[in-house]
Structure formats: structure tokens, C-alpha cells
């Protein structure tokens, strides 16, 4: 039992480390994500930066930027394996569940890096009202990015088998991710206005429950998705 768990963790960690090494050497996903977020931020900042925006508008803008930047990178997690033909070696060496969990952790790390880039840049360029609860904001971002990655990883695997590949992911993902985005926008608004964690405890419970549901459903479905 201990050996099985150890092998499982070793295998998942191997996928994460492999994807990180590959990403570090090619920088495909990171470059796409950061450039997309930077372009959007600069455009938004030049267009509406001079106006004083409502807190909820700031919150919505942050998550719109994160959502579309993330979609440009997260879809690559499986499409690059399909396109390069490495998915076969992966499927012959690990179970579909291990592949999913490895990709999920890698996608979560990518999202956390994205948020670490977008949030400070947003503060610098858009100048939201001071007095926000930064600790709470970071906690919300991590929880929401876990939920986003959980749902997007399975969809990325489905999209990788389709012909239209990357362009299909935002369309497929939007209805699935809408509950997460709405909750993240609302709780980010609270955090930006300096609210405490108690006020948004239900949002946290919702995000974690949603994560549990999407990961469970994904683990049940992923063998059928990766199967020919």
C-alpha cells in the first residue's frame, strides 16, 4: 500500500517535473500566457485607466484577463503530447488517472505563475483603490486557480482529440468555468475592498466543493477520453 502510494506520487511528480523542464526549455505556454495578459492589461490600462472604476469592475477585469490568458496556455497541456506523438509513450507507461493528476498539478502551477504576474501588474497599471486584503486575495486566487485547472485539464484532454484543438477550449470551458469565475469575481471584490475571510467563507466552500466534484468526475472520465 505504502509502495503503491509512493509510486503514485513519484509518477505524478515525474510528469510535473517533465512538463516544467520542457516548459523551462521552450517557454511556449508561459510566453503565450504572459504576453496575452500583458497585451490585455496595457490595452485596458490605456483605455479605461484614467477612470475610477467600481471595485467589482476591477475584480471582473482581473478574472477576465486571467481566464483568457490561461486558456491560451492550458489547452497546450494535452495538445502538445498529441501533436508530438508522445501521448502514446505516456499512455503505455502510466494510467490515465496518473496522467490527469500530473497535468492538473502542472496546470495549477502555471495558473499560479500567471496570477503572480497579472496581480502585481494590475495593481501597477490600473491602480485599484487601496485598503485591500492582500492575504485573502492570494488565498482566493490559489483556490480559484485550483478549481479552474481541475475543470480545464479534462477539457484540454477532450479538445486535444478534436480537430480544432486550441480554439475550441475557451468555448467548451466557458459554461463549465462560469460558476468558478462568478464566485472568484465576487470574492475578489470583497478582498479588494478589505473584507475579511468570514464574509466569503461560503465562496471558499463552493470553490473547494466544485474542485472536488470536477476532479472526481475527471478521474472517472479520463480513461475514456484518453482511450482510442
Amino acid at each position: 500500500m505504502v509502495k503503491t502510494s509512493f509510486s503514485l506520487i513519484t509518477a505524478i511528480r515525474a510528469i510535473v517535473v517533465k512538463d516544467l523542464t520542457d516548459e523551462f526549455r521552450t517557454r511556449h505556454a508561459l510566453t503565450a500566457m504572459v504576453l496575452f495578459s500583458l497585451t490585455t492589461l496595457v490595452t485596458v490600462s490605456f483605455t479605461i485607466g484614467i477612470y475610477s472604476l467600481d471595485i467589482m469592475l476591477h475584480s471582473a477585469l482581473i478574472w477576465i484577463i486571467i481566464f483568457f490568458s490561461a486558456m491560451s496556455a492550458l489547452s497546450r497541456s494535452f495538445t502538445k503530447e498529441e501533436d508530438s506523438g508522445t501521448i502514446l509513450a505516456l499512455k503505455m507507461s502510466a494510467t490515465a488517472e496518473i496522467i490527469y493528476l500530473g497535468k492538473l498539478f502542472f496546470n495549477t502551477l502555471l495558473l499560479i505563475v500567471l496570477i503572480a504576474v497579472v496581480l502585481p501588474l494590475y495593481y501597477i497599471m490600473m491602480n485599484p483603490p487601496p485598503g485591500g486584503n492582500v492575504g485573502l486575495l492570494v488565498l482566493i486566487c490559489i483556490t480559484a486557480s485550483l478549481s479552474l485547472a481541475g475543470a480545464t485539464t479534462l477539457l484540454a484532454a477532450i479538445v486535444a482529440r478534436a480537430g480544432s484543438k486550441n480554439s475550441l477550449l475557451p468555448v467548451l470551458a466557458f459554461p463549465v468555468l462560469l460558476p468558478i469565475l462568478l464566485t472568484a469575481i465576487r470574492s475578489t471584490g470583497f478582498a479588494l475592498s478589505g473584507g475579511s475571510g468570514e464574509e466569503i467563507i461560503t465562496d471558499f466552500i463552493f470553490l473547494i466543493s466544485y474542485l472536488a466534484i470536477v476532479v472526481t468526475v475527471s478521474l472517472l472520465l479520463i480513461p475514456f477520453v484518453l482511450d482510442d
Binding site: 517533465k18 523542464t21 520542457d22 526549455r25 521552450t26 508530438s84 506523438g85 508522445t86 502514446l88 509513450a89 503505455m92
Partner: peptide
């Protein structure tokens, strides 16, 4: 152990 022409390994590793 399966070796096929479709099989590919990671080119950046």
C-alpha cells in the same frame, strides 16, 4: 513494451 512508428519521445529532453 510497444515500439511503433507512431511512438515519439520528448525532443526537448
Amino acid at each position: 513494451g510497444l515500439l511503433t512508428p507512431d511512438l515519439a519521445l520528448y525532443r526537448h529532453l
